[in-house]
């Protein structure tokens, strides 16, 4: 409820910062082609966290051909490992069948660009820098060992199996990307960076509820004539805050002590309830 006015105040402060930054940029060295900052470096995820919006703003010093210069912002979350299970029908019931694992993939991945056109960036550069979550190297491997895994190469009749294995791998990979996209963790927002005059820009990044905690990296790239000319990286910290952070950390680190406390609290609650209502 209090988030909106707060946010507005923050936007105002951010705008002031943008102005200050513009003055600063005017004096910046020629090598520093792009500068970006965040409205805050620290996002607390507390008990009531229902998503938030983060303002990114900055300046790209105008060159003669500023029309052709584009900005691309990549926000990447901490690496996580995942398990993907596929449901299959067994005697009419849907139960988990095959499981595949991803040993490490970013928990969050958003791309914001100033340009809508897909072709503005050379495909090669795009791939190499993973400027789309579709190009992310997500290593998906089967969780359970199967015979045909060990003997992939060799006999020609195995080629078919290998093909099938790859198809499965793609299906699991797609399921993962779909899942992350649905939760607002992976995505692309072309043409979302707003230009303010010649060399200032701003963009709002939506942080969904259930945001994974950890250290994020905000990378900003300046692209001129399809070539990367400047880049800058800024960290962003997403951390659990308040009571829920404490409970979660406690339950994870000292799980048996947590269990013991849970028993004591429940016993106390039971005694209290009995005292309150017994006459």
């Amino acid at each position: 409820m209090t988030q909106k006015p707060q946010h507005r105040r923050r936007s105002l402060a951010a705008s002031a910062l943008v102005l200050a930054l513009a003055l600063f940029v005017a004096q910046a060295s020629a090598e520093e082609r792009i500068v970006v900052d965040l409205s805050r470096y620290d996002v607390p995820v507390s008990t009531g966290f229902a998503g938030a919006s983060l303002l990114l703003f900055g300046a790209s010093p105008s060159s003669d051909n500023s029309e052709e210069a584009d900005i691309l912002i990549k926000v990447r979350g901490p690496l996580q490992s995942y398990t993907i299970s596929q449901k299959k029908r067994v005697f009419g019931f849907w139960m988990n069948g095959e499981r595949w694992k991803i040993s490490s993939a970013p928990a969050f991945f958003q791309i914001l660009t100033s340009e809508n056109d897909d072709n503005w960036f050379e495909n090669f550069e795009r791939r190499r820098n993973a400027f789309s979550f579709r190009d992310l190297p997500v290593p998906v491997i089967r969780a359970q060992h199967r015979d045909d895994d060990s003997q992939q190469q060799g006999q020609p009749q195995k080629a078919e199996q290998e093909e099938q294995r790859q198809a499965e791998q793609h299906a699991f990979r797609d399921a993962f990307l779909r899942h992350q996209g649905r939760k607002g963790l992976y995505g692309e927002s072309p043409n979302s960076i707003e230009r303010l005059g010649n060399n200032l820009f701003r963009v709002d990044l939506a942080l969904p509820p259930g945001l994974p905690t950890g250290t994020y990296i905000v990378e900003t790239f300046l692209v001129e004539k399809g070539k990367l000319t400047s880049a800058q990286a800024t960290p962003l910290f997403v951390r659990r805050a308040g009571g829920s952070a404490f409970i979660f950390a406690f339950a994870e680190r000292y799980s048996f002590l947590y269990g013991f406390c849970a028993v004591l609290i429940a016993l106390f609650a039971g005694i209290l309830a009995n005292r309150l209502f017994a006459r």
Partner: peptide, 19 residues
């Protein structure tokens, strides 16, 4: 929940996060 075909056949679980 057990018998009807689920909308999404794949489910994703995240390994526990170390804070």
């Amino acid at each position: 929940e057990l018998v009807l075909e689920p909308k999404e056949l794949y489910s994703i679980t995240q390994a526990t996060q170390r804070p």
